[in-house]
Computed example of a mutant assay.
Amino acid sequence: MLWPSGGEEPEAEAPSPSQTASATPTPTPSPTPTGPPANTTSYEAGGLPRADVFGIHPELPVDDDPDAPTLGLTARAADVAGAPVFADPTGEPVAWLGQDQQFSGANVPVVEMDENWARVLLVGRHAAAGDGDPSQLSGWMRVADLELTPAEQSVHVDLEERTIEIATTTDDAESNEVVATDFALGTEATPTPVGRTFIMFEDVVESLAYTRGHPIVYLGVQSPTLAGYDGQSVAVTAFHYHDVRSGAISNGCIRVAPEAIEALAALPEGTPVYIS
């Protein structure tokens, strides 16, 4: 082989003892674990309350940073039996998230994560409106208990500008689609909740004539002022179609046009929704 100068490659000199000693590789230190230590205890649902839309969980914290973005991940219990939910990673579980459950809420956004633990948004309430804080609920789950998938889409609702955008982020590109430039929202007495939440599930409810057969997109957050609605023990916020869909006139739901509700209903469960 020739050196760039054009001459032949010189013969290598034998290394000195000191050079030989310095060539000994230095061991690579193990990475320092991040976050609370792992919990490897085996748990069963037992008498733990289900983290579903009807749940009241005073042990679980409300979301303490509702204006922050999520991590772009959706979590689901990896085991068909479900997985435990913790109020904090150092304690014992206080609720149980099923892999599949009635009215879903089984696919949830991750808002914080370290080596062993993920904090997720959850359906249910810390307390019903009038009895305490009904804001968006959160909880901790063990990373080992979860299936994690990228959340490529998110919904952004601006209550002042009356716009709804669906943002899509992939490895290759980012795009934003405006699906509504006007909608109806909650009144002063029954406001639309603000902050981050997520799509709980979608359903067509033929008995609700005002939807005209369009799907309802239920969210993981409930009314800040109503403990229940229409005889139900829940007051879930949702996107849905309505003939009258402009102004502050609803019980907190967001009433949209047909093309908007169809676009929103096409999004997967667990898609983050940001209402500002």
Rank of each mutant, 00 (worst) to 15 (best):
Q153H: 05
N107D: 14
N107E: 12
V273K: 05
R142P: 01
A51W: 03
T163P: 05
A106S: 15
A12F: 10
P66C: 12
T90D: 14
G139D: 05
V108L: 04
W117T: 05
W140I: 05
V179W: 00
G82E: 00
L97Q: 00
A95G: 06
D88H: 08
E44G: 15
L226G: 04
A129F: 07
Y210G: 08
E269V: 07
D172N: 12
A87L: 09
V53W: 13
D114W: 07
Q101H: 02
V217F: 00
H240G: 04
S104V: 11
D63R: 00
T169N: 09
V194T: 12
G252F: 01
A184D: 03
A78E: 06
A12P: 07
A235M: 05
E188S: 14
S30H: 13
Q19R: 13
Q153V: 10
G252I: 04
P33D: 13
L97G: 05
A118T: 04
E115V: 15
P272F: 03
A118Q: 00
A238L: 00
V143F: 07
H240D: 04
E174Q: 14
V179Q: 01
D230F: 13
P17L: 08
S30F: 14
V157P: 01
E112D: 14
A144I: 09
E174C: 11
D52R: 04
L73E: 08
A83P: 03
A75C: 00
G46I: 06
H242E: 10
V178C: 10
G46K: 01
G6L: 06
E92S: 15
T20V: 15
I275A: 05
T181Q: 09
A235W: 00
A95H: 04
P4E: 15
F54A: 15
A266I: 05
L71M: 08
I254R: 04
L122Q: 00
E11A: 14
D182K: 02
V62Q: 01
G228R: 03
Y218H: 07
G130K: 09
F54M: 13
A127Q: 07
L2V: 15
T90I: 10
A151R: 00
E269D: 13
I249F: 03
G6C: 06
G139L: 02
G228T: 08
V53L: 13
P150V: 15
R142E: 00
I164D: 02
S207L: 12
A14W: 09
Y229G: 09
Q232M: 14
G228K: 02
V256N: 03
E9D: 14
R162W: 08
D230G: 10
M113C: 09
F54G: 12
E262K: 07
F239R: 03
H242F: 08
A151C: 05
D133N: 07
R255A: 10
F103Q: 11
P66A: 13
S104E: 10
E188Y: 11
A189I: 06
